[in-house]
């Protein structure tokens, strides 16, 4: 009887552990983790800003209260965003850009690049998206300014539909 009870309890614990929702790391979190083992990467080269979903709620509340007239597009787009992370490297941008692209290319199961025809204007800009159930849930923009040795990675999570794209393109 005790043995049976033990087996059932163990089974329940294992099941609940398996049922526990697995958390996904956003791209910038993964990237910074990756940099900790990357040769040549130095924490002093880069910074990262974070706007959490809690802060996003406060921002939306503030925007609603202030009703900034000329910021309609931003307000519209903001409602689709849950979080923002911006990675900025002001040194060794070439190294970080290469590492970032390598990480994304390793994760083609999750991230897909929005392919564009290469032009002089966009050669240093790449856009990657993560989908779930045909819905874009994460957006990664890589922007490198070679002259300034600057790399910016904008990482948004949220619900990015056609309305969001339209709002952004109007900006």
């Amino acid at each position: 009887m005790t043995r049976r009870l033990l087996i059932v309890t163990l089974a329940l614990v294992l099941t609940l552990a398996a049922q526990a929702k697995k958390e996904t790391q956003d791209f910038v979190t993964q990237f910074i983790t990756e940099l900790q083992t990357t040769e040549g990467a130095n924490e002093n080269d880069y910074t990262c800003i974070t706007v959490s979903p809690q802060m996003m709620e406060r921002v939306l509340q503030m925007v609603k209260e202030k009703t900034l007239e000329d910021e309609d597009q931003i307000r519209g787009a903001l409602t689709h965003v849950r979080s923002l992370r911006v990675f900025t490297a002001r040194e060794n941008s070439e190294l970080y850009t290469a590492e970032c692209k390598r990480l994304l290319e390793r994760q083609t199961r999750h991230f897909k690049q929005v392919k564009t025809e290469a032009t002089e204007q966009n050669e240093n800009t790449n856009l990657w998206v993560r989908e779930y159930n045909k819905q874009i849930v994460e957006l990664v923009l890589i922007n490198r300014v070679t002259g300034d040795d600057l790399l910016q990675i904008v990482n948004l999570t949220g619900n990015f539909d056609s309305e969001f794209v339209d709002e952004l393109l109007k900006m």
Binding site: T24, Y132, V137
Partner: peptide, 13 residues
């Protein structure tokens, strides 16, 4: 979205 992100680990700047 069904993807559950690690928002708990976020520290606002």
């Amino acid at each position: 979205p069904a993807v559950s992100y690690n928002y708990g680990a976020y520290q606002d700047t």
